[in-house]
Amino acid sequence: MLEVCNLSVNYRHNWAVQNVSFTLQAGQVTGLLGSNGAGKSTLIEAILGLVPLANGVVKWAGKPVAKQLDKVAYVPQRSQIDWDYPVTVERAVMMGRVATTGWFRQHNRRAKMLVKNALERVGMWQYRQRQIGELSGGQQQRVFIARAIAQEADLLLFDEPFNNVDRQTEIIIFEIFAELKAQQKTLLVISHDLSETLNHYDQLLLLNKQLIACGSQAEVLTNENINRAYDRYDNSAIQPLTINHYPNANLVN
């Protein structure tokens, strides 16, 4: 179980995430929704300890996440990666095993098996010798999903895995989510998509700096919540980052 308690992140004098609390259960896929700049990526980075916390606690199985990062897999946004980097598909997936293999050691047979299985699972084994820049967007995403699988983590965090991927990749990723769920893993997935794919999630979180809503699809996706999350009451896209939301104010157009 992942417990996030009163989490706040301050980025260069602005609140990027404010007072967010929620829990994730094992064997569940949770979707993290919100507009651009709502703090979704920052929230995931804060859970991992990649950005300093202004306030709050993040615990996995009762202990701080930062102390057990080997149990956490992180799939960054595709745009964060330099796809011209001279690395082949197989070696990129092997990076999921670097921390477990440890310093001064070569990857063992088991690590190589895990990488092979993960690549076969996402349908990329035949591309293992390709340089990653030669792949399509969907294939690149699958390489990173394979890296997360090979890591054998219990908590998996995905930052926009469905951004600009083909239909086939989307299907494969949702299949993998279902398999990981069956293995009692905990998944948190950032998504933009408010369409029927939401049925794949057991729980939804709606974020706009603060947590707007949390729960089932019916509970979370009410008109009022969506308006608050996407700042519909105000058409200008630029919002001061320190804006406060008053829960009782009537924000619907």
């Binding site: 991992l48 990649l50 990062l69 080997d70 960054p76 964060q80 980097y85 990076m95």
Partner: peptide
């Protein structure tokens, strides 16, 4: 292997500890 991971994906490397 650590330097390769770090220079390829600094955030991922940090996230893996």
């Amino acid at each position: 292997k650590e330097l390769e991971f770090y220079t390829f994906d600094p955030l991922g490397a940090k996230a893996s500890g």
